[in-house]
Nucleic acid binder design. Structure first.
Lengths: 189, 189, 189, 189
DNA sequence: CATGAATGAGGATTCATTCAT
DNA sequence: CATGAATGAATCCTCATTCAT
């Protein structure tokens, strides 16, 4: 039945548990139990716990974001329209891999000393630098950072408010576009 | 030698380590060692590790935010000017207790199952509800949430960018005010 | 209000908790808390935890049993009637200090390495030796031991059966008398 | 080196130490040390300390007694001869697993809050109910309880008296039979 | 591919006890 | 008489990891 897709199944279950309970609170025993295999089996597929979590990020977050960055770099110089397209594409990535990003957001302390933490951080900085202008007034830089964070946060905030996940995503994107546009104008004017 | 200020010293050192390394990665042994006391001494002052972290939040975050909420509730109905004043006061609180809020932000997964996690969450929701209008369009609600998150995030993002902490705080406040104002107008128009 | 009777109050509360939860499971903190005093206060009245439990036994078990043994030794040689009187008196002691004896019975392992354990053991052996005849057949010796244990056990067994505590005590005494009488006859015949 | 019998070896050493020192005074460290393994090895085989002690009881006490109860229930209605046979079989079980029963007897307080405590208690009650008649006079009920306790106690009392363990066992059985017979006649007459 | 068995390091917590005030 | 503050030693237990089979 399971033919070589074990690796994938481990990642799936692990992500689910990591997102639910946090990285540190989720033990390999738990993951193995939920899969119906032995802890040792996990070690056949992944060298360490860190290796497991890294592979998840690599596939679901680092890779996609790298593609986005590559695309943006091909489209230099970065016009406002390009910036807005970055936001749109990023928003799409975000909702595709919502649980990884949620996990990242809620476990920053735990991820900080994992190499993957730095990797993600540098990607997001790259993205931010594509959107904002380093010479712009501080407030404009905040606007751009805020644009990114707004899309992140909306993934798991506003539970109370009406609207399905996709409506919320669109609203967040709208606000983000507005913020970046405003920062861009700020630079222009 | 120590004159009744031990409790306070424990809280200080604990917060420092919690913020630096994360809640789960910081052991009571470490805190005790840094203080030059025994683990058991910590247990004389705090019933559990959770109790310790809770007391820190209570003093530095829950208390101050409660005061702010109380003030806001005395000034009903909430005009735009009141909302902006809430932002200003919140921004001040935030920078006074920056490390607690940073800690909170980076350890959401760990705090989730601590009672203090729920407490903080409910406070922030209260604040959000004072600022936003539940009947407003979704985008406006996102604007208000974003205003809060912007002030939070700016505490520990934009390391690269120029400007001292206070300038960043002011810039964040400016953006937050803008977002809330925009959401308010949105409701009006 | 409390004038020098603190010692007594400590003993009372301690016995209650020891009997309820066992010796090892009952901490001095617990005793102090229930009394509304500090652990350190207990140490003013009793040198150690062992000292506390010993004092309780001394007052409620060792002393009374010693009196009984003294009485029996004054009434040598030990006729059957004397033996039966020993049983009656012992039965009375037992129900007066039921909780100490129950505690003793259920915590033999814990008491074994406390000096008071040996003390109690030697008292009960003395009592047994007054009742049984060392030259008698083994079965008769068992009868006499059984007589004592019957009275002990009935203190906290037969919860299901009808009858108030005093009726049970009388029934136990009756059976005990029978056993000792039978052992005595056995020696005679 | 060790061939799958580790689990058994742990149980053996644990029982020995539990019986010698009591449940609470015996730490897992001690058990592990005596076996020449790590504490963690114990946890591979038994989920908790309670689980370890339970497994010992299950194998050596609960199981055998359950068989005895099952046998007795097949031989309803319970004649006097059946009752005596129960005593004989129980006596045999008792001396086969003497240390478990001794341990049980001396650690009642500790076992009380372990699920295995309740289990054993209910077994002994079942046994008692097979032997005694609930409508009989209280004294007869005491006789039957006493029969059981006599066999229990003789396992570790009467150290001073002459006779090997098997002679003591037989003497105890004799007295127990007598008590139950007497209680049975009491009901008849 | 995977398991069974084990380890070493470390976690939070509890306890009896002490002593200066 | 009693407390507040602290200690040292021990407790049970969990975890990531390893390795022979």
């Amino acid at each position: 039945m399971s033919r070589g897709n074990t690796r994938q199944r481990i990642q799936d279950v692990a992500l689910e548990l990591f997102a639910e309970q946090g990285y540190e609170k989720t033990s390999l025993r738990e993951i193995a139990e939920q899969l119906g295999v032995t802890k040792a089996a996990l070690y056949y597929h992944f060298k360490t716990k860190e290796d497991l979590v890294s592979s998840i990020f690599q596939d679901l977050a680092v890779g996609p974001v790298d593609e986005l960055i590559a695309w943006a770099e091909e489209n230099r110089p970065t016009t406002l329209e390009t910036k807005l397209e970055i936001l749109r594409r990023y928003s799409a990535r975000l909702s595709q891999s919502a649980s990884v990003f949620r996990f990242m957001h809620e476990n920053q302390a735990a991820l900080r000393e994992l190499s993957i933490g730095d990797q993600m951080k540098s990607r997001i900085f790259s993205l931010l630098n594509l959107i904002k202008d380093s010479d712009a007034p501080l407030a404009d830089q905040v606007r751009c950072a805020s644009a990114l964070f707004t899309m992140h946060s909306t993934l798991f905030v506003l539970e109370g408010a009406a609207g399905g996940p996709d409506e919320k995503r669109k609203a967040a994107l709208e606000v983000a576009e507005e913020l970046v546009t405003s920062a861009h104008h700020g630079g222009d004017a």
